[in-house]
Simulated assay, not measured.
Amino acid sequence: IAKQKNADYVWLGVWEENPRAINFYKKNGFVEFDKHIFKLGEDEQTDIMMKLKLTN
């Protein structure tokens, strides 16, 4: 869908304490580009922001 809409990239946030997910995304071409605080109730968690450049 993103390619059909001519998007340059897709991005997502993954919890920094989830190394399996981070490695999965890295294996599939995603790169880290920032961090973001995600509040879950009263708990603040850090998400690593990852993006994948799309080739059209």
Rank of each mutant, 00 (worst) to 15 (best):
V10R: 03
K26M: 11
I37L: 09
Y9M: 04
D47G: 04
N6T: 02
K39C: 06
E32R: 11
V31K: 15
D43K: 07
F24Y: 14
V31F: 10
F24Q: 11
T46C: 07
D8I: 03
K35C: 03
K5M: 13
K26H: 08
M49E: 03
D8C: 05
H36C: 09
W11P: 05
G13E: 01
M49G: 02
Y9P: 00
L54W: 01
Y25T: 04
K3G: 02
M50L: 08
E32Q: 15
L40M: 09
K27P: 00
K5T: 10
G41S: 06
K27A: 06
L52G: 01
I1Q: 08
F24M: 15
V10Y: 06
E44R: 02
N6W: 00
Q45F: 03
E44F: 07
E17W: 01
E32V: 04
A21N: 12
K35N: 08
W11Q: 12
F24I: 15
G29C: 03
H36D: 14
Y9G: 02
L52A: 01
D47A: 00
D47P: 00
V14K: 04
G29K: 10
I37R: 05
E17H: 15
N56C: 02
A21P: 02
A2M: 04
Q45M: 12
E42W: 10
R20S: 04
V10L: 01
K3R: 11
F30M: 13
L40A: 10
Y25E: 05
N56L: 10
N56G: 06
K26F: 01
G41P: 03
F30T: 04
N28K: 12
H36G: 01
K3L: 14
L54P: 05
D47I: 01
W11D: 15
Y9I: 00
I22S: 02
L40K: 06
K53M: 12
V31R: 15
K39N: 07
G13F: 00
K27V: 00
I37S: 10
K51T: 07
V31D: 06
F38H: 15
D47C: 11
A21S: 09
K27F: 09
W11N: 15
R20M: 00
N6M: 02
Q45Y: 05
F24P: 11
L12K: 06
K26S: 13
A21I: 09
E42V: 07
I37Y: 09
D34F: 11
V31S: 15
Y9V: 03
H36N: 11
K27D: 13
W15M: 14
F30N: 07
V14T: 13
A7I: 03
F24D: 13
V14N: 00
M49V: 02
N28W: 13
K35F: 09
G41Y: 14
A2S: 13
Y9A: 09
V10H: 05
W11C: 13
P19L: 08
